[in-house]
Each structure stands twice: as C-alpha cells, then as structure tokens.
Nucleic acid binder design. Structure first.
Length: 885
DNA sequence: TACATCACG
DNA sequence: ACGTACGTGATGTAG
C-alpha cells in the first residue's frame, strides 16, 4: 500500500528554528533547525512508514501571488543568518536521507504540496501533509491527512475533514474563507480588520463563504456591517491569496518520490559532520562511528620475528607482502632513529628490529627486498622512511602507495594524519595511539620487544586495512591520477633532492655573523641610551612598555596580550622618535643572526657539509610543499642585507654553477586560465607586463602614462585578487581608504569581467559542493563556507577563491619537477635538482651542461601543463644562489 | 606551550 | 555592520 508524506520544508525549518534553543557544532555552524527537522523526520518515518516522501521548498523571493498583491509576505523580518545558513545543510542532509526535495521558481512549497496531494487524492493514495501552517487544512480529504506541528516540533496534530469539522465546524475548503476574513499577519494578508478567528467562524457558520458574507452584508448590523462593506475587496483578495494553487506544472514523475529508507553510512557521515551524537546513537549508526567507538579487532594474524622464521619463508613472505610499516623516532628524518619494520602478508606479520636489520646476516633478504625497485611496497609515510633508511645505507625503492599521502589528498586540511587517526577516520577497527605505547615528552620510551613488535604489526595491519578504503575514495574523488602519477613519483624526486642536499659555505655565514654582531651591539646600546634604560628588546611586552608608557608614543594597535609592536606599527611610529627606526633595524639584524646565520650553521651536516631540508608533502592545505629543518623556502631575498645570506649557498662540486629558474606570474596566469578572462589571457599571450596592463585598465591610461606608483598599486590589486579580494585588505595594504580600494576593485572587475565571474562562481561552487578543486582535481573542503559568523565565512570565501589558484600553481611546478627529474635521468645528466621554492627550482650544474640546462629547465617548466595561457620560466645562474638572480 | 614577530612565495 | 588579505616555518619570550 502506497503512502505519501509531503513536507512543507520552509514551514517546518522555521518552526524548528524558533522552537529549539541555539545549537552549534564545533565549527560554529548552527544546527538547531536541522536537528529539529531531523527528529521530526525520523519520527514520521518510524510512525508512518511512507513509501514516498517529498520535502518542498519555496524558491525565490517572488511568486505569482506577488503579481496581484505586491505586499504579500511584506514586512517580514529578514530570515536570521543563523537560520538561512541551515537551508543548504538541510538540503544536503535530505540527500543523505534519500528523501526527494523539490522547489519551483514562482511557487511556494504550499502549491507544490497542494498539487501533489491533489494527484495523490485522485489516485486514492493515502497521504500525510506535514506543515506548521493552518492554511494547509484546505488540502484535507478522505485520503489526505494534514499533520500540523504543535508546540515544539516533534508533536503533530492530525486533521482529516471530520476533525476539521469538529474543531472549526468548517469543510476543508472553507479554511480558505476563514483566512480571507481574518487575514494572516505573518504573510501580510489583510483580511477584514478587526475580524479574528472567532468572528470569522461565526460569519462562516452563518453564511458559508466570503462571497456569501458580502452578499448578505445587509443582514449584519452596526460595526460589523460597516467593516464588511468597507473591506469586502480586501476579503476577496485575501481569500485568493490564501488559496493554495493545486495545478503547479511539476516536471517530476511521482515515482521520483519513492522512499526506500536511508543509507546508514551516508546518514552516519552527515550526522557526524553535524555532531548529532545522540541521533547517531539512537539509530545505531555509531557502529561505524568515531575513533573510540570502534573496538580493536581481534588480531587475525600471527606476529613473527625475523629470527623466528626460516630464510626461505622470509623471502616468500616479503614477495607476497601486502603492506609495510617502518617506525622511526624523531621529527627530522635526516636524524631519526629507526626502531623497527613490520611487513604484513596474509595471516603473518613479520617484524624486524633495528638491531636485526643492521646486525645480522638474517636481514639480507629484507634489505634486498627493500632495495628492489620491482618489489612494490604499500606503506605509510614512506618518504620519511626512505630518508631514515638512506642514512643507514639502505635505499628504499619500489614505493607503490603511501597511505599518508593518499589520506592527505582526500583531505589536505587534516592536521592529524597519524595512522591511529586515519584508522578512526575511516571507521576501521582501532589501533593504539603512539602516545599510549611510547608515552610522550620526557616519558617517551620504546617498550620491550614483544610489545613493540605487536604495535608495529598492528600498524602494518592498519596500513593494509586502509589501502582499499583510501584507493576507493581517491577513485571517487577523481584523484587516482593525481596520486599515482604526480604525488607518488614526486615523493621519490623530493627524497632525492633531500638526500643530495645543498652545500653551505660556513665561512660566508660566519663573516656575516660577525658583522651582524657588531651592528646589533651598536643598535642595542643606542636603543638603551634613547630609552634611558636597559631592557630585552626581543620581548614585545618589555618593548611595548618602553615605547608606549615610558616614551609615551601613541599606541593604536593591540594584540591579545598587550600592545602590538610589529613592523607595521613601528613604521607608523618612526616619525615620532628616532628609537623606533633603530628598533626596526635591530629586529631585522637579529632575525638574520638568529634564524639565518646561527640557525643555518647549526643545520650544516658535518659529514656532507650540506644542509638537507625535509620537504613535507602533506602539510599545506593548497597542495604546496613545505620545508623544514631547515626551512629553505624562506631564505631572505627582499632586502639586500638579508639577501647576502644566499651567498653561502654554493655548488657542491668545484667548477659547478647554481642555476635557478622561476615561473613568471604563475598564479596570475593560472587565474587567467581558470577564469577564462579574455582580457587577461590576451595580456599573457602577448607577454605584456601584467601589472602595467592592470594599471592601464584600472586607471584608464595608456602604457606610457603608467608611472611606478600606479604600477605598484596595480600590483597590490593583483595580489589582492589572488588572495580573494576584500576592500579592507586592499585599503590596508595600500594605505588608502576603503572607498578608494572599493573603486579600484570595481575598476578592476570592469576590466576583467571573467575574473569577477570566477570569483562569484567559485564561492557558489564551494557552497554547493562543499569543496573547491584545482586543475588536476586536487580538492579542499571548506565547511566554514556555511558559517554564520561573518569572519569565519568570509575567510572560507577567500580561501575558495585562492585555493584553486595557489593549488593549481603547486600542481604545475610539481609536474615540472617530476618531468625534470625524468629528463635528467633520460639524458644521463649530472646536473642535480636541489630546491623548490613554490615557483622556483634551484639546480647545481656542471660547466658542460650549463648551456643545455639554461634552455632545458625553462622549457620543461613552461610545458609542464598544456594551457591556453602560456607559461613562462626565467633562468639565472651564478657561483652561488645570490648570484643566480 | 601559546603568542608575537618576521622570513619567504 | 561585521574586520582580513592566501600559504608556510623558525625564533625568542613568558607563562
């Protein structure tokens, strides 16, 4: 037996919103109305057991009712953002429920429901209409019951025609007349002023309809007669407005409403995002629930040690390996200590300790297997493992899949990609956290061999269990190619660069350090003199006291903890007191000394005379790399004093040259490409200076009229565009008013209309999909795009604009790196790729390859990805990184 | 360990 | 009206 449930989405979500106290999830998203809606849905499903369900929504602001009466629904309070942000969430949730939803421009939810209930009624289908709006009673019939929400949301009161008769003494259709007479404040329907429910009912019981009341007006007396005479037109119009239109041109077949129950996994995911913990529990969705909820599985494998297994069985086990886990201690993989290895194969997991690997002949097959490029390994953070093993004299080869990398691609904003966290995220049987096994901080300790072996085996097993889930998810997200053809090969290229390292000449740094020390001492004493006291200039707190209390300089910017003393503040303060300039200089030199001279010297390895950075491939939310121990992506360049640090970066072989190639305006070229803006594309195709071009268009001048200041401002506008422009940010950056900034922006968008369209579209896309993507389908989720908090939401919107640009640029240089590595190998070159700095690649090149590399590198970089907009890379070279400018 | 600051793209 | 530019890592101070 068919049973339909038709729900007035707008009415119910409003009721729920006002009935329930504010409720937010940890991301600050309001969820109370969705929660209320959900509890009601669950109850309906349980009690009514529907075969078909539909939630109808109002679409757009105006409906056919506005044509006859422009003030319809006028004077309404604007929907609070705390509620409006919940509409997209509800619509998304309905998808997880597997419930149909429908809206049609020009019609209200009532009309859609009216039409469907008519169709159901004509077909003799039992139907329940759910709403908070009494008007709906007009739809009641023998087949159609109206369920009206009562106080709160979960309680409903059901009406069939008999119950309407009992309650009001009216037929369903007379409900329209009731409203025609009494009106409805919430919809701004006037009715007859002064006529409320009681009077209206009395009139209807006597006359039967609005028209009959008007016709019989002479039978009325006194005030009542006057009112009806005066407002009869209003009554007729009100009746019309209150009439639900039951002939909406629906484009859908009613079988699209079929409801076959929700998918536990989909609904569980949706509830987890919303943090509806009680509902997860109530529906038993928590079996797949959060980390702690999933009990550890009974181990279905045997842990075997290297010494406990005959050599031929070790070889066979390795050959049939399904996953590997390599444990090392320490953040810096160039200095980390290997603890042990576990390899999973069928019902046995082999564990190999550090001592076994390094000390016994038993380990020979293991080492051979690790180094065998034809033996595929699927593991976890194998990039780090490769480096750890490298410094032990073992070359890890044959990496086929890295689960950490895969998990990063699936959610690059995830900051906890530990195995335990991933296992929990993907709802697999849990494993112990490292902290539980090793302890942390001072308590850190490697446990005894049995406990350790069990833990490593559990991790290898965890990797094995993650593989199908992650590869499946990658496939669903269209990121398999990105993973296997870009990120995985890149991991190997990066490891090669890191092992190679770049030579640093300590003498250059020491000389610079001595000079800095003298200057710093001088600034310190001068600053103390001007302050009239000695204090720690490095302490923003003490500095703030000196500047703003002792010296009485104007404080205009604060931090959480006190006065701000950052460069922006000090630059504004400089004219007031000469100590300020000294502090700025002191800061600059102190930074160079501590971070770059002393910091870098500490990182030079004794054995290689080089610094070996560690590129992290799973940190940046946009797909960029990051660099640690030391960070070689922020070596000074903008100011000459700092730039001299680069003189210390030299070739590691005598007679070789440092060659650097950087992409020209890669982010703006990417923007031109993905926005398709013709004006901008043309500028790049003609290789016109983009900032000058921007200045021409923004200021409406000819090329020769563009002065350096105009170009500077245009450049700032371009930066702003890439970052997701806001008036305030631009005005702040250019030190102009917000109005001026807004005008710049307007001018810019007038010239680059495709860019404007991109910015608008990408935000809509982010709202609809919940994520944005790069050209290579790299994905970033933006849950905050629905936040009610203006700041949080705005940040997500800017991120939506920026990430495809920055991320695609990252995709491109990564492609170039993989291709460049291939070229070097294929051509048997001795040149080495050493560094990547987001849009720049640095090589060391033997003399005889210089001419080739000068053309090869930019050519490979420019052709990394075929675009409409040409890519360009410029090369420079010299005896050190400073000279390669 | 959190915060402020500043180096880079 | 709201108040920020996007993405990182290292350092020193202070609780």
């Amino acid at each position: 037996m068919a049973k339909w449930i038709l729900i007035d989405g707008n009415s119910i979500i409003y009721r729920a919103f006002f009935a329930l106290p504010p409720l937010t999830n940890s991301a600050g998203l309001h969820t109370n109305a969705v929660y209320g809606f959900t509890t009601m849905l669950l109850k309906l499903i349980e009690e009514e057991k529907p075969t078909h369900m539909l939630v109808a929504f109002d679409a757009g602001k105006t409906t056919f009712r506005h044509e006859g009466y422009a003030e319809y629904k006028g004077g309404r309070e604007k929907t609070p953002t705390e509620l409006s942000e919940q509409f997209p969430i509800l619509k998304e949730l309905l998808k997880s429920f597997g419930i149909a939803q429908y809206e049609l421009p020009g019609y209200e939810a009532d009309d859609i429901i009216g039409t469907l209930s008519r169709i159901a009624d004509e077909g003799g289908v039992e139907t329940v209409v759910v709403s908070g709006d009494k008007d709906m009673l007009q739809l009641a019939s023998d087949n159609v019951t109206i369920a009206l929400t009562r106080k709160g949301i979960s309680e409903v009161e059901r009406y069939n025609p008999a119950e309407i008769k009992e309650r009001y003494g009216l037929t369903p259709l007379q409900i329209i007349d009731l409203k025609g007479l009494m009106g409805d404040t919430s919809d701004n329907i006037p009715g007859i002023p002064g006529v409320g429910e009681k009077t209206a009912l009395k009139l209807l019981h006597e006359f039967g309809s609005v028209e009959a009341v008007i016709a019989g007006v002479n039978e009325l007396k006194g005030k009542m007669k006057e009112k009806v005479e005066e407002h009869q037109e209003s009554a007729v119009m009100s009746k019309k407005l209150a009439t639900i239109y039951r002939e909406v041109p629906l484009e859908h077949e009613s079988d699209e409403l079929a409801y076959s129950g929700y998918d536990d996994a989909a609904l569980g995911d949706a509830f987890r995002k919303l943090e509806f913990k009680s509902l997860i529990e109530r529906l038993g969705l928590s079996a797949a629930g959060s980390a702690a909820d999933v009990p550890a599985a009974e181990a279905n494998y045997e842990v075997v040690s290297l010494s406990g297994l005959p050599a031929d069985e070790v070889t066979e086990l390795l050959r049939a390996s399904e996953s590997i886990y390599i444990e090392a201690i320490g953040d810096n993989p160039h200095q980390s200590r290997l603890i042990g290895i576990a390899v999973a194969s069928g019902d046995r997991i082999l564990t190999v300790t550090y001592d076994e690997l390094m000390g016994t002949t038993l380990s020979a097959p293991v080492r051979a297997w690790l180094e065998d490029a034809n033996a595929p390994k699927k593991g976890y953070d194998l990039h780090k493992a490769e480096l750890t093993l490298h410094w032990m004299g073992i070359d890890l080869r044959g990496v086929a899949l890295d689960t950490m990398l895969a998990a990063y691609l699936l959610d690059p904003t995830d900051t906890s990609l530990t195995l335990a966290a991933l296992i929990s995220r993907y709802k697999l049987a849990s494993i112990q956290s490292d902290e539980a096994v090793y302890g942390k901080g001072a308590k850190f300790q490697v446990p005894g061999s049995d406990v350790l072996a069990a833990h490593l085996a559990a991790k290898a097993d965890a990797v094995r269990r993650l593989i199908p889930v992650l590869t499946d998810e990658l496939e669903k997200g269209h990121m398999s190619k990105l993973c296997y053809e870009l990120e995985q090969p890149l991991a190997v290229v990066l490891a090669g660069m890191e092992k190679q390292g770049i030579k640093v000449n300590p003498a250059v740094l020491e000389d610079l350090g001595a000079e800095l020390e003298r200057n710093i001492a001088q600034y310190m004493s001068d600053i103390y003199t001007h302050a009239g006291m000695e204090f720690n200039i490095n302490s923003p707190r003490q500095l703030g006291e000196v500047l703003f209390e002792k010296l009485g300089l104007p404080a205009w910017k604060k931090t959480k903890t006190g006065y701000s003393t950052d460069a922006e503040v000090l630059e504004k303060l400089a004219p007031y007191h000469e100590i300020v300039g000294m502090i700025l200089h002191y800061r600059q030199l102190a930074k160079l000394q501590s971070t770059y001279v002393e910091g870098l010297l500490k990182e030079i390895r004794r054995d290689t005379g080089k610094v070996h950075t560690y590129y992290r491939q799973t940190i940046a939310a946009t797909g960029r790399l990051s660099s640690q121990f030391p960070n070689l992506q922020n070596i000074p360049i903008r100011l000459e004093e700092g730039r001299r640090i680069r003189k210390a970066f030299v070739p590691s072989e005598p007679g070789w040259t440092i060659l650097a190639a950087d992409y020209s305006q890669i982010e703006l070229r990417v923007l031109a490409e993905i926005s398709g803006d013709e004006n901008m594309k043309e500028a790049f195709i003609k290789d016109i200076d983009i900032h000058t071009k921007t200045a021409m268009d923004v200021f409406g001048v000819t090329p020769d009229q563009v002065d350096s200041n105009m170009r500077r401002q245009a450049k700032a506008v371009n930066f702003g565009i890439v970052y997701g422009i806001s008036d305030f940010g631009l005005s702040n950056n250019l030190n102009i008013t917000r109005d001026e900034a807004a005008r710049f922006k307007e001018q810019y968008f007038a010239a680059f209309q495709g860019v404007r369209a991109y910015m608008d579209n990408i935000v809509v896309q982010a709202r609809e999909n919940g994520y944005v993507t790069t050209l290579l389908d790299r994905r970033r989720y933006l849950p905050d795009i629905h936040a009610s908090n203006f700041n949080i939401r705005s940040f997500a919107e800017r991120t939506a604009m920026n990430t495809p640009i920055q991320g695609t640029a990252a995709d491109i240089i990564k492609l170039a790196m993989v291709n460049m590595d291939k070229e070097i190998r294929a051509r048997g070159l001795r040149s080495r790729m050493l560094l990547q700095v987001h849009d720049e690649l640095v090589f060391e090149v033997p003399q005889e390859e210089l001419e080739l590399m000068k053309t090869l590198v930019p050519q490979v970089m420019a052709s990394a990805l075929k675009l409409d907009v040409p890519l360009r890379a410029d090369v420079s070279y010299g005896d050190n990184w400073y000279e390669a400018k």
